[in-house]
Amino acid sequence: MIYLSKSALLILLLASLSFVGIAQDRKIDIYEPGQRAQSFFVELGGPGFISANYDFRFQHTRNGWGGKAGLGYFSIDNEDYLTLPVQVNYLLGKNGHYFEMGAGASYIRNSYDRYDYQYDEQGWYTEYYRGRDVDNQVLGSLTFGYRKQPVDGGFNFRAGLSPILYEGDFIPYLPYISFGYSF
């Protein structure tokens, strides 16, 4: 794991968002006017781990600023995970091919069985079921990737990396891939 200070993470986030401002000043990207782009997709990996998401643009454009919200759930070895990823993102590009970058947070609720152990006189231990415990946390997330979102709607594809920030740790290599429908 790579450990970064909070100030280094803030600098990384500001540097990535300043790229958007530079791109706008140099006219690299043009807004694609038309019906506001919206999409629904299922994402594997990324800030929701396994989630269903709704994505939309804030203005009546196919690219530019937008947001996404999702809901995820999965269970492994009697541990249940509920995820609620939310991000603000920016699509840079045109004609259905975009570079996507974003920042947001994911609420994660982890529910699991808790056991306590006691030793008897011979040194053998016995386990006692104590019930379900719940942990709640919020992870910060970034997104950098490619998005294929047809201008007239249809099949939507996304792939990239979504670095995760939590409790002072930084995981830069969490990949994601998604498939869905744009309208």
Score class of each variant (00 low, 15 high):
A8M: 09
P175E: 03
E167T: 12
S111H: 03
N136P: 03
L91K: 11
G46F: 07
V138R: 06
R114G: 01
G48V: 08
T61C: 10
L71K: 13
G66E: 01
L142H: 12
Y146A: 08
Y181F: 07
G72H: 03
I30R: 15
G168I: 07
I30T: 14
S5Q: 08
P175T: 06
F40I: 12
G72C: 02
K27H: 12
I108M: 03
A15N: 05
G180R: 01
Y54S: 04
N110T: 14
Y117V: 00
V88G: 05
D135Y: 14
P163W: 13
S16D: 00
V88D: 04
I2N: 10
L17S: 11
M1N: 09
K6L: 10
G67F: 12
D80M: 05
N89M: 10
L13N: 14
I11F: 07
I11C: 03
G46H: 02
A159G: 08
F144W: 12
S75W: 03
Y90K: 09
V88E: 06
N95A: 10
P33F: 11
I22V: 14
V151F: 12
G180H: 10
L9M: 08
Y115I: 00
K27S: 04
Q59H: 12
G160E: 02
G140E: 06
D169R: 15
A159E: 03
M101R: 06
R114A: 08
S51K: 14
G66Q: 03
Y173F: 14
G93P: 07
S51H: 08
L13M: 14
N110H: 15
L14H: 08
D133S: 07
G153D: 06
D29Q: 11
V86W: 11
I30H: 15
I171W: 12
L17E: 07
Q59F: 14
L14S: 02
